[in-house]
Amino acid sequence: MGMYVAVRGWLEVDHKQREQVEQTVAAYGRDGYAGGWAFPVKPFNWTLYVFYGGDIRESAVASFRDLVAELARLAPVDEDLDMPAGFFLLSYERQQSTSWTIRDGQLIETLAPAELRWFAERP
């Protein structure tokens, strides 16, 4: 059966990048976890927030990380040169948590901040 990892997080991108984000997610959709992505039905203001929430097999984390890293590298589309930014929290069944911070075209993986580690703790 395997171990599972609870993944939740978001990316901030420009509205002009929505189609590219959707296409990139669809290209990785072969593993069955693409259904965890949520796009606003009626976007507003200037930032598009794209969310993810789902429990994925531990063996699929590397592929999911590749997807998020690819999204982090999306080229800027306006004069501000803003790249995607975001945060993901991963809680493993082994009662450990890691986090991915997305900024400046990179995915930075670290232990989850102490104040968020309780997500992985079992009573």
Rank of each mutant, 00 (worst) to 15 (best):
T98V: 13
R73L: 00
A85C: 14
Q96Y: 00
Y92I: 07
T101S: 15
L81F: 07
Y92L: 04
M83T: 13
L67A: 06
Q95R: 06
F87S: 08
F88D: 02
T98G: 12
E70V: 12
L67E: 03
I102S: 04
S97I: 09
L71H: 04
D104T: 02
E93V: 12
A72Q: 03
T101F: 05
G105Q: 04
M83V: 13
W100K: 04
E93M: 09
T98A: 10
L74R: 04
L90F: 09
D66H: 03
D82C: 12
D104S: 12
R94V: 14
A72T: 05
V77G: 01
S97E: 01
A69R: 10
F87K: 11
L89K: 10
S97P: 00
I102M: 00
I102K: 02
A75P: 11
Q106G: 11
A85K: 01
D66Y: 02
Q96L: 07
R94D: 15
E93K: 08
L74H: 04
V68G: 10
E93Q: 13
E70Q: 15
E93P: 05
E93G: 09
E70A: 13
F88A: 04
I102R: 00
F87V: 10
Q106N: 13
V77L: 03
W100Y: 07
I102F: 02
A72R: 00
T101V: 15
Y92T: 05
F87T: 07
W100M: 12
S97G: 12
P84S: 03
F87R: 12
D78C: 09
R94N: 15
R94L: 15
T98Q: 11
D66L: 11
I102W: 00
R94Q: 15
L89E: 09
I102G: 03
S99F: 04
D78W: 12
L71P: 09
R103C: 10
E93L: 06
V77F: 05
V77Y: 00
D80K: 15
S99G: 10
D78L: 10
D104E: 08
W100A: 04
R73P: 02
T98K: 14
A69I: 05
L67R: 08
